[in-house]
Amino acid sequence: MTTSLGVVGPAQSEFLFHFTGRNGGRSAWVPQHIQSMSPQERLNTILGEERFRVFAPFGAARPDEPGDNGMPCLCLSECSPDHMAHLVAARGFSPWGLVYRREDVHRHGGGAVAYLPEGAHEALRWSGLGHWAVRTEEGSTWMHEREWRVPFPGGEAEIQSVEAVLVADAAWRPARVPAGQWVEGDTGLPVPGPLFPEAIELEDYPRLWRDSKIWVWDQQRKDFIKYAPGELR
């Protein structure tokens, strides 16, 4: 049974965004080849593989277990169009990623993090629940993320569907992937499979791109231009 989180107010949003780029540092346990990717490259990889590789957020590890990197979590931000405009213009966020409804995130064990003073945050870390909180202190600027997290102890999560794919350029397309369909090279006629003489496997855009809505962020309008599934092919 789905638990309703109630009607959102003007300071809230029905939608949560997993951004594939961020303007801050990354945890040391994130592999270097992932850290060096652009937001577009990370989105391209996620769409092609249909999975997230997730890592523990900052502050998630227990201080009494130095070898423990903490609970891997998928991190998302709650964003109305006005707040998205602020994140992009004032906070340096890159509008590339995936969009979910908060009800769906909640149904998969996710929730909003708590923004806590250092003492309370430290207590959660000692209890093994540090991934549910972000420390606030003088000079801290993280409350603007309005963060939600979904724990994934295994460090990976398959993606069945998304509310939308978020991009900043309507002309951008992900790399094509094998489509599982084969044709005869000379004629282009369908053939049963790869063992057929002169068989060539067709390629197409990833399933998540084909089957999902595409939201293009327009910074001048400060809003999303929304396209139906399959409209941007």
Score class of each variant (00 low, 15 high):
Ser4Ala: 04
Ser4Tyr: 02
Leu5Asn: 08
Val7Met: 11
Val8Glu: 10
Ala11Leu: 10
Gln12Thr: 08
Ser13Cys: 09
Leu16Phe: 09
Phe17Trp: 06
Gly21Met: 06
Asn23Trp: 14
Val30Cys: 09
Pro31Met: 02
Gln32Leu: 03
Gln32Ser: 10
Ile34Gln: 04
Ser38Trp: 15
Pro39Met: 09
Arg42Trp: 12
Arg42Gly: 13
Leu43Thr: 01
Thr45Phe: 14
Thr45Pro: 00
Ile46Thr: 05
Gly48Arg: 07
Glu50Ile: 01
Phe52Tyr: 06
Val54Phe: 03
Val54Met: 01
Phe55Trp: 02
Phe58Gly: 01
Ala61Trp: 01
Ala61Tyr: 06
Arg62Trp: 01
Arg62Gly: 02
Arg62Asn: 03
Asp64Pro: 00
Pro66Tyr: 07
Pro66Ser: 10
Asn69Gln: 06
Cys73Asp: 02
Leu74Pro: 00
Leu76Ala: 11
Glu78Arg: 04
Ser80Trp: 00
His83Phe: 03
Met84Pro: 08
Leu87Phe: 00
Ala89Trp: 05
Ala89Asp: 05
Ala89Gly: 05
Ala89Glu: 12
Arg91Asn: 11
Phe93Lys: 00
Val99Pro: 02
Arg102Ala: 09
Asp104Tyr: 14
His106Lys: 11
Arg107Tyr: 04
Gly110Pro: 01
Leu116Asp: 02
Ala120Phe: 13
His121Cys: 10
His121Arg: 03
Arg125Asp: 08
Ser127Pro: 00
Ala133Ser: 10
Val134Cys: 13
Glu138Ile: 12
Glu138Lys: 15
Glu138Asp: 12
Gly139Val: 14
Gly139Ser: 14
Met143Thr: 14
Met143Gln: 15
His144Asp: 15
Arg146Phe: 11
Glu147Pro: 08
Trp148Met: 08
Trp148Thr: 06
Trp148Leu: 14
Arg149Ile: 12
Gly154Val: 04
Gln160Glu: 15
Val167Asn: 03
Ala168Cys: 13
Asp169Gln: 03
Trp172His: 02
Ala175Val: 00
Pro178Tyr: 03
Gly180Pro: 04
Trp182Ala: 05
Val183Ala: 03
Val191His: 07
Pro192Ser: 08
Pro192Trp: 07
Gly193Thr: 06
Pro194Val: 13
Leu195Glu: 15
Glu201His: 10
Glu203Lys: 14
Tyr205Ser: 11
Pro206Lys: 06
Arg210Trp: 05
Ser212Tyr: 01
Ser212Met: 05
Trp217Pro: 07
Gln220Thr: 08
Lys226Asn: 07
Lys226Leu: 06
Gly230Gln: 12
Leu232Pro: 02
Arg233Val: 12
